[in-house]
């Protein structure tokens, strides 16, 4: 269960998140959408307990992110947008290292690493290679594994499909729907709207730090009278005169 009440974050004069109120029950898979700079990543980072809100409250599984950030961090798994890993380590070393941060015993960690490696088709020799030699997609598989290694009850994905090939992306989509069915609460931030439309059972759209839409994809389409989530998004986040702007841009290039 995730519970946000008037959650806000300012960076100096700039209001990144402006009083978001939201409840996400257990087992729900929520797609969090918004244009660039809308406040998605800031919201997610506040939910991990790593970024302090300016005002408002946020609770994850009953623990307040400000008063008890440790309790929050224990139950949250996070895939950051950066996909950054310590590249001097091998994948196996990195995953063992992450396991140590969550106090997972070494033997147990190896079992879990093996399980995820099989799922993502990473064999033993590959696991023993330096992460600096991994492609972006392979690295992303390691990042996703590292977020799930401690079996978190809440999982926050920020652009998790970055770099994944079509097969891995399909595996991932199947994985998250399975995780949600098993009762995990999942927030899924992405710009790939058709994936969100297919896998998420609820969609929240943020624009300029505020929620502008909340419901199932079907309900949002019905409310706005649009035929797809992409069109709903386009309508609510204000990209107007797209064709005219594209033509003007092309003209400027040829001048």
């Amino acid at each position: 269960m995730i519970r946000l009440r008037e959650l806000a974050k300012n960076y100096g004069d700039q209001q990144a998140v402006r009083g978001i109120t939201l409840d996400i029950p257990d087992g729900q898979l929520v797609g969090l959408l918004g244009p660039n700079g809308a406040g998605k990543t800031t919201t997610i980072r506040m939910l991990t307990g790593m970024l302090a809100p300016t005002s408002g409250t946020a609770e994850v599984e009953g623990a307040d992110v400000v008063r008890d950030p440790l309790a929050v961090k224990r139950v949250v798994g996070y895939v950051p947008e950066s996909g950054a890993v310590f590249e001097a380590l091998t994948a196996q070393e990195y995953l063992r290292f992450v396991a140590s941060l969550y106090a997972i015993p070494e033997a147990e960690a190896d079992v879990r690493i093996g399980r995820f490696a099989r799922f993502f088709e990473l064999d033993d020799p590959t696991l023993r290679k330096s992460l600096s030699s991994y492609s972006k997609g392979m690295r992303q598989k390691v990042v996703i594994t590292s977020a799930l290694l401690h079996n978190p009850r809440v999982v926050l994905f920020d652009e998790p499909l970055n770099g994944l090939d079509a097969n891995a992306a399909l595996s991932f989509k199947t994985l998250i729907t399975t995780l949600a069915r098993e009762g995990k609460t999942i927030i899924y931030c992405s710009h790939i709207l058709d994936v969100v439309e297919r896998v998420c059972n609820r969609v929240v759209i943020i624009h300029q730090g505020q929620i502008v839409a909340d419901g199932t994809a079907e309900a949002l389409k019905a409310q706005t009278g649009e035929s797809s989530l992409e069109r709903v998004f386009n309508r609510l986040t204000g990209t107007e005169n797209l064709l005219a702007r594209a033509e003007e841009f092309a003209r400027a290039l040829s001048q």
């Binding site: 307990g49 790593m50 941060l101």
Partner: peptide, 8 residues
Amino acid sequence: DIFRYAPL
């Protein structure tokens, strides 16, 4: 960043 979102 992992040190910030891990339960330490």
